[in-house]
Every structure is written in structure tokens, then in C-alpha cells.
Design a binder for these strands. Structure first.
Lengths: 269, 269
DNA sequence: TTGCTCCTCACGTCACGTGAGGTGGC
DNA sequence: TTGCTCCTCACGTCACGTGAGGTGGC
């Protein structure tokens, strides 16, 4: 006969846990001293304790363990219980996989944006590679592009592999009736749903400027980049591009002062 | 201003949840009617509710959400919180992956054993393929083989790919001082630790009999299979094999009446 | 007396859900 | 009056862990 402390050391279950299992009737002691209330366990309980401990490590609920112990003594008999439990575990596994994926996406995106912010905010020239995009062309006001991005996101979410960008086909700024195209970089596997076109956007030499701040102050950055282009006598190729490196964010509306937009103007040689 | 019911429909959060968040101070209503106690929400609360709901979908604890909402309004600011949360989620993910793996192992093993039991218990002849094994040779009593199996299991657990088997080098039954070898089938990648040898066990033509029941009744089945062998004048090649298709089980000690052991005797041609 | 082991009982955890019993306005 | 919406308050969930306060034997 073992005291609860000794039995705890034998089984690796805490004294509190053993008392709890005793109260629940799951693992009753061999006897209880009627005077002191002391619980005493014997060797025959070790096996039962071991089974409970092992099933608990697999996070089988106590109610299921009680069922298993009530009617069976063989692994094969519990097969059904284990299969049902496996389904429970698979469901949780899938849930956490989904959560981990969303978290990874947010963290990656934010980290990239953060890395960008440490750059200097000077006009620079660089080479753009070609990029495959899903695109929706629109005429109207610029703030209507949000709906288009959302639509591409819903239709092709899994294929998106980069930051949203806007192509401007106008050569001047237009309040309304502007001609532009909302685009998302997508993987090769993406197939175009109706109303969304998928094509390759050619690369080329471009002049680029990072704009930090709200969208309604983009004008200032346009002024800077266009002066640079004119000073050097470059020839502008339309459409020009705006890449939204950091906008309202996946969770928070974000602080517009920290929005980050790259203006890209392709230039002829 | 919205009543709690209206606000619930807007945000997708239950009325009970909204009341709970209000009591916790996480999402206080815009105002509370002092007479009726009615909670009223305005548009400014929608965003906060949406943030809470989204973070809760990622299973961020309410305490962390409160911290996030207290000091920040930008995704980048919460990056640290999200990274820490990601670590939490990864830990749970790994835990459930481990559980799923153990469950799969048990279920597969039990299903195979179950499928075996439906066979007839007649002596049959069949061809054995070669199998790669990890082995510990011993002299002593048969019941000492358990320790050897456990040792192989601990050292090479990940590589084991089949049921344990015992090779008998004696031509007669010995109570003590028997000469036998405990083996586990292993994958090619397994590397031999000290005291365990890894080699290929050759295949060949064999006579086989399934024994159902406790180990101390193996004698009866040996009698049957040996009579079969002698009747046909086959020549026995040592070592003979016992494959433990179903023994005490991974969780339960199991019912010895349902133990399943295959006796395999290789025969010369 | 001190230290150790055991006991019971109440409460906390985490984020709500489930009633019970009651109110107020159409 | 009936039906609807809102309220508070208490309790349940799941498997224990954390004390507080007390006992019994060396």
C-alpha cells in the first residue's frame, strides 16, 4: 500500500491530480482510512494510473477515458475512441495551421514594410523585373480601387504573392473619371476569373521614390520624382505605377503618417 | 447609436460576448442608459470591435488584445506581440502534431492486428522477403527480451517500420539460458548504436502459423506447425521466428487471449 | 517543538454560454 | 395581452493548481 505521496512519485501524477481523480471516481484509491481520510493505493492501481496518464498526454478528455476504462481492457476495443479522438486532434491541428499561416503572412508583410522604412527617401533609378499580375481596369475616382483590390483578393487570395499596385494610364491627375488599373502580383498557377485579367507586366528601367505618409500627400512626392525625370530629360512611359508597400494594414486601420507607397515611373532609353 | 442587438448584428459578436467585453472594459459602449442599464454603441466602436474579433480569431488572449489596444494603433507596433503570439501558436501546433503522430501509430498498428485476426488459423506456406533489422542477441530467459525491445525502441524509435520479432537459435525449448535475438524492422537510414547490430535478414520459403492467445500457450501452436513440417519432410532452418503482431499494446496491457503471434519456420528446398 | 505529510474547502483559470427571473416599450 | 429586446445574477465549462487552515505521527 502506498500513501498518495508515494503513489504520486510512482506514477508521475501530482498529489492534487490524484485527489481529483479519486473525487471523480476515475482512479479510486484501494482504501481510505475512515479516521484520517488518508488515501491508500496498491499495485493494482498503477496500471490504471499509467493508462490515464498516457491518454491524458494525448489530450483525451477525462469523460472519454472513463468510458474507455469502464468497458474495455484491450487496445482494439478502444480503436473507435481513438479514431474519434484523432478527428478532434486533426481539427485542432488544422485550426492552428490556419492561424499560423495568417500570422506568418501578417508578420512577413509588416517586417518587410518596416525594413523599407529604414531606406533613404531619395529618388533612385533601378531595374524592374517582369511580374505576373491579376488586374481590374477601371474608370472613376481613385478611392474606388479598394473594391477592386478586395475583389481580386477574394477571387485569387491563395495566389497573391506581392504588394498591391495601381497603374495610372492618365498623364495628368484627375479627381474623377481617372483611368487606372488595380493589380495584385500572382503566381503562375492563377487562372483568371471573369472580370479579372491575368497577364505579365513587362519590366524595364525605372525611376523610383518611396513616399511616406497619407495618400493625399502623394502630390509632393510626384513633384519631386517628376522634377528628377525632367532634369535628366528622361522620357516617361505610361502607365506609371504606385506600389502600396504599407497601407491600412491587415488588422489595424494603421496610422496614415506611416503609410508607405513606392512611385515607379518607367523610362525609355 | 446602436442597441447591443444591432451592434451584435453589425460586428458578428454575440450579445453575451459584447456584454462580457463591456464588463471587462475591453469594449465599453459609447454610453449606458442610467435608468435601464441599456448599452448603446456608436460607429467609432465598430473598428475596435472588428480588431478584437480578428485577433480573437487568431486566439490572441484578451489580456494581450487589451495591451495592444491600449498603446498602439499601427500594425508595425504590434509586430512584437504578434511574433510572441506566433511562438505560442507554433508550440501548440507542434504539440498537436506530436499527438497526431502517436495516435496514427497506435491506430495503424491496431488496425493491422485487427485485420490479421480475421484470417484462419491454419498452417500455411508462404514466401518471406528480406527485411532490414536492428537486433540484440541474448542468452537467458525469454521474458528478458522485453528490455531488449525497449532498448531498440528508445535508440531507433523513428526508424522502426514493422512489428517486433524474436529469432530462436535453439532447436529445443529452454526455460533458461536460451539463445535468442530480439529484432525490430528498421528503415535503411537507421545507423547502429553500440550494442545493437543492424543487418539484413534474408527471406525465403517458410511455413507460418498464427497463434492467438497468451504466450505460455505457444507450445500448442509449435506442436501443430512442427507436425506439419515433419509430415511433409521439410528441413528446418534455424533460427525460427516469432513475430509479435499484437501483444500487450501501446497503451493497455491488453487481454492475453487476444495476443497474436506468428510463428515462421524457414524451410530448405 | 519542528518538519513533514496528509486532509478539506474555497477559489481561480479562460472566454464566454446557459439559463432564470424581471423590465420596458410597441 | 403578447412578443421582442434588454437587463442582472448565478452557475457551468475543463482539468486541474493555489492557497488557507488544520491534523497526525515521528
Amino acid at each position: 500500500m502506498y500513501s498518495i505521496g508515494e503513489f504520486s512519485r510512482i506514477t508521475g501524477l501530482t498529489v492534487k491530480t490524484l485527489r481529483f481523480y479519486a473525487d471523480e471516481g476515475l482512479l479510486p484509491p484501494a482504501c481510505i482510512d475512515p479516521d484520517t481520510g488518508y488515501r491508500y493505493y496498491d499495485d493494482s492501481r498503477i496500471d490504471r494510473a499509467r493508462i490515464i496518464a498516457q491518454l491524458r498526454e494525448l489530450e483525451v478528455p477525462l469523460a472519454v477515458i472513463a468510458e474507455i476504462l469502464a468497458g474495455h481492457e484491450d487496445d482494439a476495443d478502444v480503436l473507435g475512441h481513438l479514431v474519434r479522438h484523432q478527428a478532434r486532434i486533426e481539427a485542432r491541428l488544422q485550426r492552428y495551421r490556419d492561424i499560423a499561416q495568417v500570422l506568418q503572412r501578417i508578420i512577413t508583410s509588416e517586417s518587410e514594410a518596416k525594413a523599407m522604412t529604414t531606406g533613404d527617401f531619395q529618388v533612385q533609378e533601378k531595374q524592374l523585373g517582369p511580374v505576373r499580375i491579376a488586374a481590374v481596369r477601371m474608370q472613376g475616382r481613385y478611392d474606388e480601387c479598394g473594391a477592386a483590390f478586395a475583389r481580386i483578393g477574394r477571387a485569387l487570395g491563395r495566389f497573391i504573392c506581392g504588394k498591391p499596385l495601381l497603374l495610372h494610364y492618365d498623364t495628368e491627375y484627375k479627381e474623377s473619371d481617372a483611368d487606372f488599373e488595380a493589380c495584385m502580383p500572382v503566381r503562375d498557377a492563377a487562372v483568371a476569373p471573369t472580370g479579372i485579367s491575368i497577364r505579365e507586366l513587362a519590366g524595364g528601367r525605372c525611376v523610383s521614390l518611396l513616399h511616406k505618409g497619407p495618400y493625399d500627400q502623394l502630390g509632393r512626392s510626384y513633384e519631386r520624382i517628376l522634377r528628377y525625370v525632367h532634369d535628366r530629360g528622361y522620357k516617361i512611359e505610361t502607365p506609371t505605377r504606385e506600389v502600396y508597400l504599407k497601407g491600412p494594414g491587415l488588422i489595424f486601420r494603421g496610422n496614415p503618417k506611416r503609410y508607405l507607397t513606392e512611385i515607379q515611373i518607367l523610362i525609355g532609353s
